[in-house]
Design a binder for these strands. Structure first.
Lengths: 163, 163
DNA sequence: GAGCTGACTTTCGAATCGACAAGCCAGGCC
DNA sequence: GGCCTGGCTTGTCGATTCGAAAGTCAGCTC
């Protein structure tokens, strides 16, 4: 029915979560514009006006988000120069930003299934084979896990605090 | 370096995404309070004041979000009655809400790795074995895929629109 | 050097979110 | 009946977001 808790966490009434990583991720990238810009970065977009066109928002929003995402270390700002143009900057995903792939594609998967009338416009497949791709919970032993198969344990020395 | 596009999508300059599922998911649950409440629902919380205590927010916010998430079909509102109490309601995850597992745990995974100083308070493991669990992109053939191994194709009859 | 263009930034309103406080309401208890 | 409590709603306020429009600025073109 729900996740299982192990060790010190087993008594659920004895602790309350602080420093939740999900909430911290939301604080970092939890806006529509951040997600659409990261989506475009994942799709290969790097230039300012491409972000504006492809996210269908305004240059003001793109400017603010690019700055924020760069400061967070999710994008890196690289100078480039085309012949007869002044130097401009392109924004490319960092390794850290690339680690958002499961978050973004999981959102896509959910939206495709539940928020779109027809399964959504895009579908993930394996490059080469064309096999469908899903975002799943995978154990180290290679098994795909459902909610009931997952447990949560406290990390290292962390001591849960009594409410 | 980025995702590959196949078929009609191969020419990236020829189309612009509309009806993005990621953006729709953000519109649906893209607030800090919705995510923390869904987190608690995933952890087994069902009652109003437990949500308030465990999310460390206010009853006003919990009330508004529970209503919204119920209307979205992510939670279902079930009456219950304890002896000597009036009937109240508990909120339990629906199948649709359970499909947010990859989204939420992917956020947890990202936050644990990049936003926490010490790897974060909680860790996902396989129930029974204790093997670590990760949220990954998995192809139908059972292979775990990286960004470069993933391609995107248009869904069925959908025709991308020229910019 | 005057104008133009592309890349950003700034400014201003409307809407939303989150925190705080107060109000409401059903039913048990006296 | 009157009071209390727990669950939930409503109202207000500051902060943030989004959208549109105007402003800035570098370097090319003429």
């Amino acid at each position: 029915m729900a996740v299982a808790f192990e060790g010190v966490l087993a008594d659920r009434s004895a602790w309350i979560l602080e420093n939740c990583s999900m909430a911290m991720t939301m604080d970092a990238i939890g806006t529509r514009s951040a997600v659409t810009i990261l989506r475009e970065a994942l799709y290969g977009t790097t230039r300012f006006d491409d972000f504006v066109r492809r996210t269908k928002t305004t240059d003001a929003i793109v400017s603010a988000r690019l700055k924020q995402l760069t400061e967070l270390g999710l994008l890196s700002r690289q100078p480039y120069q085309e012949p007869g143009q002044r130097t401009r900057y392109e924004y490319v995903l960092t390794d850290k930003g690339r680690d958002l792939l499961p978050v973004l594609f999981a959102m896509m998967q959910f939206g495709n299934k539940h928020l779109q009338p027809d399964g959504g416009p895009l579908r993930l497949v394996e490059r080469g084979t064309g096999d469908p791709v899903r975002i799943v919970a995978l154990s180290a032993s290679g098994k795909e896990l459902q909610l009931e198969d997952i447990a949560i344990e406290a990390n290292g020395t962390w001591a849960p605090n009594r409410p």
